[in-house]
Amino acid sequence: MGKMQEDARIIRNEEVARMTWLMRLHSPGIAARARPGQFGMVRVREGIDPLLRRPLSFHRIHSGKGEIELLYRVAGKGTWWLSRCQPDSLVNITGPLGNGFTMPDNPSAAIALVAGGIGIAPLFELMVRISESRSKIKAEKMHLFYGARSADELLPAAVFESTDVSVHWSTDDGSFGFSGYVTELLEEWTARAGFRPTELFACGPLAMQHNVARWALARDIPVQLSLESLMACGIGACLGCALPAVHPGGSSAEHYVHVCKDGPIFSAGSIQWRKIRKQQLPSPIFPCD
């Protein structure tokens, strides 16, 4: 089944952590087609300002009920408007877009996931699916390393109870769990526990993903990173969401991949991290915006 455009009806839209909103939508077409790690382009508002759709990954996909959930951080004008949307109103979504995660081949694999802040969004549906596929076998729990800047930005522990995952928490300011970056926790805990994942999944700020990539590459652990970028179309037409990548022919020639079409899921070794520019990092929201 291909991509589609759908007017989704909002069932619920509420703040579940600081600046972090959960929107549940009735979107049967997209719910039937979507896989974990894919995303939709959401038109936050009618009219021409903001002009562009916002790419948001699927946090939950309830194909049976024809519903999807989006977890998003209010980070600018677009997501602010989205947070203003009321239940029963419609938002137009195109999707499902992108490649999505590749499910682990070996169901009893030792799986670790690393989430930074809103990076938990696409990982959640993946954890649910892996939990389901492993429900009948005896495997070690998945390990989720989940960090945010502060305790109030974390999802509550209760939401993870339905999944086969043990959560290791961290906050940059030490207000909950390990004090420091989530990548430091990953390094410390795995070393202490002697745990070596055979499959690694990550999503979060670019700097965090870079550290996860370096950690995994040094240990030869395959990792699937869910990356993001500004994007206009989401379907490979505007070519705006480019990231510097390793040339497929192995040459040193300049080469770019596109987050919308080649991703958003990438292996750590495919990205040319050194060539990513400072402008790629997000800027704070202007207080009056």
Binding site: L51, M231, C238, G240, L243, E254, R277, Q280
Partner: peptide, 20 residues
């Protein structure tokens, strides 16, 4: 042609600027 390094697009009021 490989195109320009990113960021290649930015949204502006009722528009967008590109340097693909």
């Amino acid at each position: 042609r490989p195109g320009n390094p990113p960021p290649r697009i930015v949204e502006t009021p009722a528009g967008m600027i590109n340097a693909i």
